[in-house]
Write a protein that binds this DNA or RNA. Structure first.
Lengths: 338, 338
DNA sequence: TTTATTTACGAAACCGGTTTCGTGAAGAAG
DNA sequence: CTTCTTCACGAAACCGGTTTCGTAAATAAA
């Protein structure tokens, strides 16, 4: 089968490409009879308009990009569903891009978007990202950007986040209430807002309990699982080891449990654990994991809705817009009072 | 900042767009001095070529599509990494599309690809997909397609799969060897090759042990978790309930464990469980889950490599190409002999 | 010195739709 | 019967790069 374009279609119909185009777009200038003829033959010939030609002419692609660090994290996979739910039927395509937590890749992806490849961007930045100039540049080129979850505070764009400070506070407070007196915090970055805010909440909880915050108890984890294992093991093997852990991302769960296993520390007797996580199987872990569950779907949806508004150009949200959707502490066995 | 296109750039340089274009593409017809000038001014003006214009002219987009049912499944999220690893540096973009297990959506996505939006497609079909005409039509339009994991046998296109029959056989055999005599199978579709092949392997294992295969013990699960819960609960609440379960996809793990929990059946004493899964946290479940782990990364990578070859048009793989990469049984607590 | 070749660049066509503008014909208004 | 609209459609420009082809100038070969 050959490529049947609008010209071929027009020839078949003995009409001009202009007329065919208008008929397909249901223009009022075309008679009902002609429209029907065109539609019929188009279907019969299996005509599919070239998306790039339209994009070129319209100067818009009807594509929006979702940039996330990784897809193997239930927060992001659920957030994507929220995004798609908002975009649904809006005649936009959702393109998913993964940075694999690499700043260089994030830069490269955004750079490519300056060319008009997408009409808007939803982004959750990588762990490595500290500088937001690549994002600001994109915004300067009139490509609307909306942050979700992992935001850069100093870039002027709408943001949708959860209440990271409160969540960190609540998580640590929960452990304190259950008897912990020496709590460690596992972050994923020194620059990332979510990590810092969650840590700040954790610190505040300690302070409110008149406990000192020790830098040794705050570890910054990396995407390297083996390295995290070593670091956490070192932390928990210390003489004066923590009796509680607040882990700031889902992917640390496995490592924490493995280390405890290896060190023969039993959860929650020896050490209690709270983890930011959206995994539904948290409930069937050994022991079931107490989680701070983020409203992933709602965050994705809200962010997409903001972006759609920005695209509408009608009532574009202010760059200062910040939507905060609270997380929920779900108490399970891993933090049970002994 | 305005959109700076090649014309504006040419004007700034006092050159023609043709010359600028050639300079940017490092054509031999352009002098080194001019090339450098162009490059400098292009960078200075922040010039980014319009991807759609190039695609239109070249009649290729340098995009490839990955179509999967869901991203919240570690098989697929890992497979994506494999795909990206193969595509890396090949100057192609990877676009991820989700069908959410809906045939209608799969059709809609593929239909859109007839327009030349992507140069090739990697697909793992939805549960609902039985008819492959939407895929055949795409192939007929000269868009190369490669199946991975969830393939349609009767569509002529290269395929990359794991040894589903053997895996089902091995999983069931493992349970039988550990004392099970009444094993149930949880599938996800009556038409999907992976589900059927895994089930066939399971059946063969039973036959080899001279056990009868009962239709009542083979459940077809849906994307509806609640419904699955009910069905599995019904199965396990029967008087003559199974003493072993082979679950054909990762997402069933949670439900199976939850049902056992609710029915107070302990794993593995009362019932042993094997599940197809790539979850690394299988090891920290309660009890640790025996899995059949698919080579997700390798499958993704191999599929992408086949597609790249198809795009090359040089040594395109035969449509009959079928690569089989074996899965691995990882024995853990959930199937331990009592 | 003449001819052949190479070099470096520009004009214009092209990819495939969309849209503006113009026009002939039919129908309505005067 | 004339004038004004409305209707239905086509020619051509356009979106932004890329490529073919042509050409003037510079250089090399004869």
């Amino acid at each position: 089968m050959k490529k049947v374009n609008i010209k071929a279609l027009a020839k078949e119909l003995n009409l001009s490409p202009a007329t065919v185009s208008k008929a397909l777009r249901d223009s009022h200038e075309i008679s009902a009879a002609t429209k029907q003829r065109v539609l019929e033959v188009a279907k019969q010939l299996n005509y599919a308009p070239n998306a790039y030609a339209s994009s070129l002419r319209d100067r818009r692609s009807r594509n929006i990009a979702v940039i996330i660090p990784e897809v193997a994290d239930s927060f992001f996979s659920i957030a994507i569903n929220g995004i798609e739910a908002a975009i649904e039927e809006k005649d936009y395509h959702v393109l998913i891009y993964l940075t694999h937590e690499l700043y260089a890749r994030e830069q490269a992806i955004l750079k490519d978007f300056k060319s008009g490849r997408v009409d808007g961007v939803l982004i959750s930045v990588s762990r490595e990202t500290t500088d937001g100039s690549h994002i600001s540049e994109l915004i300067a080129e009139d490509v609307p950007v909306v942050f979700f979850d992992r935001v850069l505070e100093n870039v002027e764009a709408p943001k949708v986040v959860t209440d990271d400070f409160n969540s960190g506070y609540t998580g640590a407070m929960h452990l304190l209430d259950n008897g912990c007196r020496h709590i460690a915090f596992l972050g994923i970055s020194n620059s990332l807002s979510i990590s810092n805010n969650r840590m700040a909440g954790y610190q505040q909880a300690l302070k409110d309990h008149h406990l000192t915050v020790s830098p040794d108890d705050m570890i910054t984890c990396t995407p390297d699982t083996a390295a995290n294992f070593t670091a956490i093991k070192q932390l928990l093997a210390k003489e004066n080891r923590p009796d509680g852990i607040v882990a700031s991302v889902e992917n640390l769960t496995n490592t924490v449990y493995q280390v405890c296993n290896e060190l023969q520390l039993s959860i929650p007797q020896d050490i209690k654990v709270v983890c930011f996580s959206n995994l539904d199987i948290a409930a069937i872990l050994h022991p079931p994991l107490t989680t701070i569950t983020q409203p992933a779907f709602q965050i994705g949806k809200a962010a997409a809705e903001l972006l759609l508004k920005s695209l509408g150009k009608k009532d574009a949200p202010s760059p200062a817009t910040q939507i905060v959707i609270p997380s929920e502490l779900i108490i399970r066995g891993s933090s049970k009072r002994s």
